[in-house]
Amino acid sequence: MAILITPTTKILIQGITGEFGARHTRLSLDYGTQVVAGVTPGKGGQHFEHQGHRVPIFNSVAEAARATGATVSAIFVPPPFAADAILEAVDADLDLAVAITEGIPIRDMIRVKRARQGRRTRLVGPNCPGLVTPGTGPGSKGGCRIGIAPGYIHRPGHVGVVSRSGTLTYEAVFQLTSKGIGQSTCVGIGGDPVNGTSHLDVIKLFNADPDTHGLIMIGEIGGSAEVEAARWVREHCRKPVAGFIAGATAPAGRRMGHAGAVIGGHEDTAAAKIAIFRECGIEVAATPSDMADALLRSAAARGIKLS
């Protein structure tokens, strides 16, 4: 079991013929992910070929979903056109749209988020590494990899990871795998200030998933999404949770790489978020090297053995 995606999930790639989209489509196919369609307007009827795979390309998402049964889209469309690509996935009533694209204007995302209200499609991202549900093959092959994360660092298991940052997610996953602890699903929600799925949304899913036995929540300075999630954890989550917040040394008012990683007031600093994590019973990793160990401490305190 896992959340949002499983090894049998059929996915389509919006922007499959672009350099970025093509590179990661190849890696997902190598990982064993069910990439069943590509979408590039104007290139319908062509095929994306890789190592014996022959993925049909369509002009529209609706057409691709109808013809192949794809229920999830990974979006690699360049920033000026990315919001439109997300709206197209929403309009096609997919289960999930994962926007990898970095650099989408905030105003576009404000409009996209409003347009999504009342629709069935969940959005993860933008500006995110995507999701991985590890498989059971060597190097966790046979899993579902949507986006740009390195598949081979994963291991199937029972820890859920949710994060705003790509490389910090890999760091956490690598620590877990090195200790022989696997993951149910890893979700990168992205570093933008206006995004689809929040920390809290993912944590609710992990909490409800019987196959997820512990969680790592990785956040950053800026906004209050981590705080909202931590307060919910205190009230509703009985699974061990470890947390890390990046940006303790970041100066106020400067955008630290991610558009959303900027301190706007005294409540969105790392210190404020860490204090709330502690109040809510989340085991805080003292350094990024301590993320897996922090989860193990939290699990041990509850008498839970993670694997």
Partner: peptide, 17 residues
């Protein structure tokens, strides 16, 4: 010198730590 914004921020943090 780091790859990724989150990792870059936390590298600064761990130096301070």
């Amino acid at each position: 010198l780091v790859n990724g914004a989150g990792l870059a921020m936390s590298t600064m943090d761990i130096i301070k730590h």
